[in-house]
């Protein structure tokens, strides 16, 4: 049986109905990519370039040295990072608990709550600070203690605003969870905390990780909430970019802070994409 061994050339099936040649397909991508490059990537590159151009002229690392040396920057960096981490932690705990109740302890109105979350997500973040100003502000309902002008006020506002961002992927993950699993577990005598720990939590981990890292990035970049507290004591990196550029007209300095902020956020966002892809989102 001297049958010739065929080694077929590997040719991909056309993914869609349009068997256009590869070059033509690439050509169609060009216009939007060109727009993105012109209006987003090029400006971003200019920011990086500007960060190496001190006002005194020439190209040097001087702006970086100046910014890193300043107490204000180091303080802002620290505030930004711990606020973001703490907010994310708060959102994860609160979001998990609330989503758990909505998904697994059904009572009338749960659907309305889910719809409310969607609406809530379409409002800007500074509305929360605005409301907190009435509740905790200097002339507020609860009274005039300087709560809002401390980082704790920002923390509360961020937890309030970003918790739904954790709840949404969680609710989606919970709706995929087979309720038969829960019924099987409880028929085997497991009590609620045990079911949560051993059945629900493992299923929710990918969604928690994805939601958590998204919130972390959003918190690192949050501006409106901090701006509205009007607190001089709470300065985050985005706030520093704004005040250096607009209030002090120190563009090289603003660009340096911007570059640092972008590096942290994009790095974390890359992590988020990897995690959420793992989670099969």
């Amino acid at each position: 049986m001297a049958e010739a061994v065929r080694k077929p050339r590997v040719v991909r099936g056309w993914p869609r109905s349009s068997p256009r040649p590869f070059g033509a397909r690439l050509l169609w991508v060009l216009p939007p990519v060109a727009l993105l490059a012109l209006f987003f990537l090029y400006p971003l590159a200019l920011v990086v370039q500007q960060s190496f151009r001190p006002d005194s002229g020439g190209t040097s690392l001087q702006p970086y040295a100046d910014v890193f040396a300043s107490e204000a920057f180091r303080h802002a960096l620290w505030t930004t990072v711990w606020l973001a981490l703490a907010s994310t932690g708060g959102c994860l705990v609160l979001g998990f608990l609330l989503a758990l109740v909505i998904a697994f302890v059904p009572l009338p109105g749960a659907k309305g709550v889910a719809r409310f979350i969607d609406v809530y997500l379409s409002f800007p973040s500074f509305l929360i600070t605005l409301a907190l100003l009435f509740i905790y502000g200097t002339t507020g309902i609860i009274g005039s203690f300087q709560f809002l002008t401390t980082p704790w006020g920002v923390l509360l506002a961020e937890v309030t605003y970003f918790t739904p961002f954790v709840m949404r992927p969680l609710l989606a993950a919970f709706s995929q969870l087979d309720t038969a699993q829960l019924e099987a577990a409880s028929s085997l005598g497991a009590r609620a905390p045990r079911i949560v720990r051993q059945v629900i939590l493992p299923e929710a981990l990918p969604a928690l990780a994805a939601g958590g890292s998204l919130v972390l990035v959003l918190c690192l970049n949050e501006f409106g909430i901090v701006l509205f507290t009007g607190a001089k004591g709470v300065t985050t990196l985005p706030m520093l970019v704004y005040s250096k550029a607009i209030l002090e007209s120190d563009y090289p300095g603003a660009c340096v802070v911007a570059v640092v902020n972008v590096l942290i956020s994009v790095g974390l966002y890359g992590l988020y994409r990897v995690v959420s892809r793992r989670a099969g989102a």
């Binding site: 400006p43 200019l46 501006f223 550029a245 902020n261």
Partner: peptide, 13 residues
């Protein structure tokens, strides 16, 4: 992923 403030700054620049 890029902070909106930075997008603002870059567009401004």
């Amino acid at each position: 992923a890029v902070p909106s403030v930075v997008v603002g700054l870059s567009v401004l620049v």
